[in-house]
């Protein structure tokens, strides 16, 4: 299903990983996914080392909540797990296969919803979701039912054809979140997903997360809102700030 233009040689571990990850509306996964493991991760943003020694294990069906003060690196860790940032130390693995070996397959397994909604004012929600699905390589024809389901899940049918510049912040956030369902991916990385959401939308989000987890999906979420997630583990980033900010050039 996934003809990645892999520059590196393909690792045997990952391709079969991405085949199994087609978490479509099919019944729960017969074969369990490997765990997503973070070993002693350290991250640098610009000149500042944000955290060191961050380790976690996320097995299928689990949720990991990132807690910590502003600037403790919640968003940085999510971007790092998404593969947008390369860790300065430590490793990220699917089971035993390091992610860095085949980043393209890793990207195919996740959704990343950041602070920004990534919506173009001139495009309508339906076009935004169709574009997001196409970017992930879904044929338009086969994506149609998934689009309607995603729009319905976040109560967007009414405004599906309005240009996004007419939408309120909450509606824009719901369109961004609807991307999660427009094309399937087992790993959800959500950064403050509940900003600007009203209570009804928040319950829809919690429901979407619950069904996703029931199908063996994983969720990593950075949030301050009291969102109802049962059996969720927490990773506190506050204590991980390095005592000594060392510029790599001076560290040797």
């Amino acid at each position: 299903m996934h003809a990645a233009l892999g520059k590196q040689t393909r690792r045997p571990m990952l391709p079969h990983l991405s085949n199994r990850l087609s978490l479509t509306a099919a019944p729960a996964l017969a074969v369990p996914l490997p765990d997503l493991v973070g070993e002693d991760l350290a991250c640098r943003r610009g000149e500042r080392i944000v955290f060191i020694g961050a380790s976690f294990r996320l097995s299928p069906g689990d949720t990991l909540i990132l807690s910590g003060a502003n600037g403790s690196g919640k968003s940085s860790l999510l971007r790092l797990v998404a593969g947008l940032l390369t860790p300065v130390a430590g490793r990220l693995l699917w089971g035993i296969a390091p992610v860095a070996a085949d980043l393209a397959s890793h990207h195919a397994c996740l959704h990343y919803i950041g602070h920004q909604d990534a919506l173009k004012p001139a495009m309508t929600p339906r076009e935004v979701l169709a574009f997001a699905a196409a970017l992930r390589g879904r044929r338009l024809a086969s994506a149609e039912p998934a689009l309607d389901e995603a729009l319905a899940a976040f109560d967007l049918e009414g405004i599906a054809d309005w240009p996004c510049r007419w939408l309120s912040a909450g509606q824009r956030r719901r369109v961004a979140l609807a991307r999660l369902l427009a094309s399937p991916a087992p790993l959800w990385l959500l950064d403050e997903p509940t900003t600007a959401l009203d209570s009804d939308s928040q319950t829809r989000l919690e429901q979407a997360i619950a069904t996703h987890r029931s199908k063996g999906g994983m969720v990593m979420i950075a949030t301050h809102a009291p969102i109802q997630l049962d059996a969720a583990t927490t990773l506190a980033l506050d204590g991980l700030a390095p005592p000594l900010q060392l510029d790599p050039i001076l560290a040797e």
């Binding site: 593969g83 947008l84 990207h107 195919a108 602070h115 920004q116 990534a118 970017l135």
Partner: peptide, 12 residues
């Protein structure tokens, strides 16, 4: 600025 670049970077 609006975050689409992240989407494109994470696409196939």
């Amino acid at each position: 600025e609006d975050g689409s670049l992240d989407l494109i970077a994470l696409s196939s």
